[in-house]
């Protein structure tokens, strides 16, 4: 059982207070949706949770270990942010290969791309893909590590009905394998994920 705990999180960006007294707890197999207006600090929260922003008040504990002090924490999570982390001038295959080197893991591309029914795009340049297709490919990055937590920043933006369903299915599968998922969103996902906080 894994547990991610946020205690009294307060965070300033420059002079602005973006997160105030946030408390929440997540156990294995749970998904949390964070909803809020634009600029309400959703992305900041994810960057705090993924240990990029280190100056804040309060504590974030993963299995009762403060994430700032836990050197192994970085192997436990994976994230997909709004930037899609793709090189426009390279082909899909080459992009995946670059990630492969970073994550030091061998992946079979064709199988991976089947997830979103995109096998036919392997050789295409990323620049020629639509925003939705780019988003799908950037979501494939979740398969590159065996992580315990996923942070997804606005994952449903640009996705069509079909691919959204595939993603929801992926998240649910991950949950049943004891994964924790945190999603930010400015649309209502109450029908699919009930656990929701507003900031």
């Amino acid at each position: 059982m894994n547990e991610l705990k946020i205690e009294d999180l307060t965070c300033y960006r420059g002079e602005n207070l973006v997160l105030k007294d946030l408390n929440t707890k997540l156990k294995s197999g749970e998904t949390l949706v964070i909803r809020g207006k634009n600029g309400s600090g959703k992305t900041t929260l994810l960057r705090v949770l993924s240990n990029f922003i280190k100056s804040y008040n309060g504590k974030i504990l993963f299995n009762d270990q403060n994430i700032i002090e836990d050197a192994n924490y970085r192997y436990f999570f994976n994230f997909v942010c709004q930037k899609n982390s793709l090189k426009d001038n390279l082909s899909v295959k080459n992009n995946l290969k670059l990630w492969e080197i970073i994550y030091q893991k061998n992946i079979s591309y064709s199988k991976l791309l089947e997830d979103f029914n995109m096998s036919h795009l392997v050789e295409r340049d990323v620049a020629s893909l639509s925003d939705g297709q780019k988003k799908c490919i950037s979501l494939l990055r979740l398969n590159f590590t065996e992580s315990k937590i996923w942070f997804l920043d606005e994952p449903f933006v640009f996705l069509d009905e079909e691919n959204s369903q595939i993603l929801i299915q992926k998240i649910k599968n991950f949950n049943t394998n004891n994964g924790i998922v945190i999603i930010t969103s400015n649309i209502n996902l109450q029908n699919t994920f009930t656990n929701e906080i507003k900031i």
């Binding site: 930037k83 090189k87 426009d88």
Partner: peptide, 17 residues
């Protein structure tokens, strides 16, 4: 710049602190 703008720099820093 290129890695920063497309978001790869974040991944690199996560994996190689």
């Amino acid at each position: 710049n290129a890695d920063y703008e497309d978001g790869n720099l974040d991944i690199i820093i996560q994996r190689y602190p």
